[in-house]
Design a protein around this nucleic acid. Structure first.
Lengths: 216, 216
DNA sequence: GGAAAGCCGTACCATAAAGTACGGTTTATG
DNA sequence: CATAAACCGTACTTTATGGTACGGCTTTCC
């Protein structure tokens, strides 16, 4: 028998198309899930919006649940990825922290982010891995990044030496202020002024509490 | 005064039974919704667990959605009621705040509280009033209570004069620490040690930042 | 050029759950 | 005691949806 090509992971145009199709499905499913919610979203709706047929959907994902999981997996960590690098900007403490908080609050208050979070929280009674995945892929990554950032500033003497993980949690908790709450509980798009205010307040408070030199 | 009559509302015994029945339905529905989630809970299951028939359910509530709304209405404000009075204990600032935080964190980390919160957040994409009701009946009441408490301690000079509402929000945000997160995202019953630690941490931080005399 | 894979469209199946209908029974009210 | 309301049990209707089956069309691969 003739050997097939042993070295060709990204082989053939066929596999490429397949991958592309998969991404397309995930994207469409994300959109539909986002504006219908998990329960209300139907596979038929997803297929329709995809422009394809239902059969194709089941060729890629064995069930609605699996598709949903794939979607959340795909999306999990997106916030962390977009926001953690900001902490390596090399800017001075206050500016770096402020930028981080601002971007972080703005990102998680997005209608899309809110919709995903709602689904994760809402379904994690039935599927606990959803909540845990969110915690591990998003929250932990962000707080690890923050903790490292904080620790760096302890090294150079700018911040008091306290538990960096605690401070990281404190920062993310404080970021869940008025702006975010209005989005989550009030179903309103975030008000940029409030986002900025919450970011500034968080930054101020943290610096006030944790700078090495006591406040004046 | 009404003597040993077990049910004492002013109306006839018939209306009383009706009210009682309604309460029973709400209680059962709450339980079923809590451990199945809104979508997975079925009216048949509720009727079964109630020991009654489906017809009865529809005599009291026109639809599943209406029943759900009634349940959340009934439950909304429960945390506020159980936790706000703690602020009027007359204890010194630190003790009062610590007690409040401890009780607050413990209450909202309860499996039932988590289950209800998950439903409210999960369904408030489809029914925005749910989230708003939660915010208005629970969050706002709690934070109003806290703000008044804080303002009182500003009056007597214990705390710095800053925006009491902001400080109230800060306190509740800080209470959503490790213990609560483990319950919400990790689907684990709350660890009493962590609850206590989060309460203590929150209290310390707030006092450190907002006591009138700069920290030593 | 021919085989195979992937895909579309559509029709279909099975199931489950919301909501209805109804006859018979208990229970309060007058 | 008679009436009417509330209620139970059960069977039924309707609708929606996850999931399947299949015939034919298009694209990729050799």
């Amino acid at each position: 028998m003739i050997e097939s090509d042993p070295i060709a992971p990204p082989c053939g145009r066929r596999a490429a198309r397949k991958e592309e199709r998969r991404k397309a499905i995930l994207a469409v499913a994300l959109a539909v899930f986002c504006d219908q919610g998990y329960a209300a979203a139907t596979m038929s709706a997803i297929a329709a919006r995809l422009g394809g047929s239902k059969g194709t959907l089941w060729r890629y994902f064995a069930s609605k649940e699996e598709l949903f999981r794939a979607v959340t997996d795909e999306v999990s960590g997106r916030v962390a990825e977009s926001v953690v690098p900001l902490l390596d900007s090399g800017l001075p403490l206050r500016e770096a922290l402020l930028r981080f908080c601002h971007h972080f609050i703005a990102t998680i208050s997005t209608p899309e982010a809110i919709a995903i979070y709602r689904m994760i929280v809402g379904e994690s009674g039935q599927f606990p891995e959803l909540g845990r995945g969110f915690r591990d892929n998003n929250v932990r990554r962000i707080e690890s990044g923050l903790a490292a950032f904080v620790a760096r500033h302890m090294e150079d003497g700018t911040l008091r030496r306290e538990d960096p993980a605690r401070i990281a949690t404190t920062i993310t908790s404080l970021c869940l202020g008025e702006a975010y709450r209005e989005a989550l509980w009030g179903s309103l798009p975030p008000d940029p002024a409030k986002v900025a205010a919450d970011a500034a307040y968080t930054t101020d408070l943290v610096l006030r509490c944790y700078t090495a030199r006591p406040m004046t």
